[in-house]
């Protein structure tokens, strides 16, 4: 009974969140670099623009870039950016953090998000792009 309940709960959670770490597709950083071109009206790796810079994003608290004027909602979200939280946010930013200034519908295709996150991981770690 308990196991059936847990299974049902897991199914509900997966249905609600869309994907789990295990079910997320493997990302292709090279393809993610092309998808990142969708972001560059507002974002850059090394400098704050309409949106905050991405260098150092993994492990950073949302609202944590010094000198960037975040929405109250983002600053108070308590999110720490990792693959999972990025996947959730990028799918539907305004649902993930209601009140965010990121007025964007989201990256709807799971493979696109995985590729984008793979690119961000490779580009924002200890890479020449962030030095």
């Amino acid at each position: 009974m308990t196991s059936r309940f847990l299974a049902a709960l897991f199914t509900t959670v997966v249905a609600f969140t869309g994907t789990t770490a295990a079910s997320r597709p493997q990302g292709d950083a090279a393809r993610g670099a092309q998808i990142y071109e969708r972001c560059i009206a507002c974002h850059a790796l090394k400098r704050n623009r309409t949106g905050p810079k991405h260098c150092g994003i993994f492990g950073r608290r949302a609202g944590g870039v010094a000198g960037f004027d975040y929405s109250d909602a983002m600053a108070a979200s308590g999110t720490v950016w990792d693959s999972e939280s990025l996947d959730r946010f990028l799918e539907a930013p305004m649902d993930a953090v209601p009140g965010t200034s990121m007025g964007y519908d989201g990256v709807k295709v799971p493979q696109d998000r995985a590729d984008l996150i793979a690119y961000l991981q490779s580009a924002t770690a200890d890479s020449p792009l962030c030095r």
């Binding site: 071109e37 969708r38 009206a41 964007y104 519908d105």
Partner: peptide
């Protein structure tokens, strides 16, 4: 060109919401 392409994507992401 990069900025303009990004702008196209940004507006495309704004229209539905």
């Amino acid at each position: 060109a990069g900025l303009e392409k990004g702008a196209v994507s940004a507006y495309l992401g704004a229209v539905p919401i």
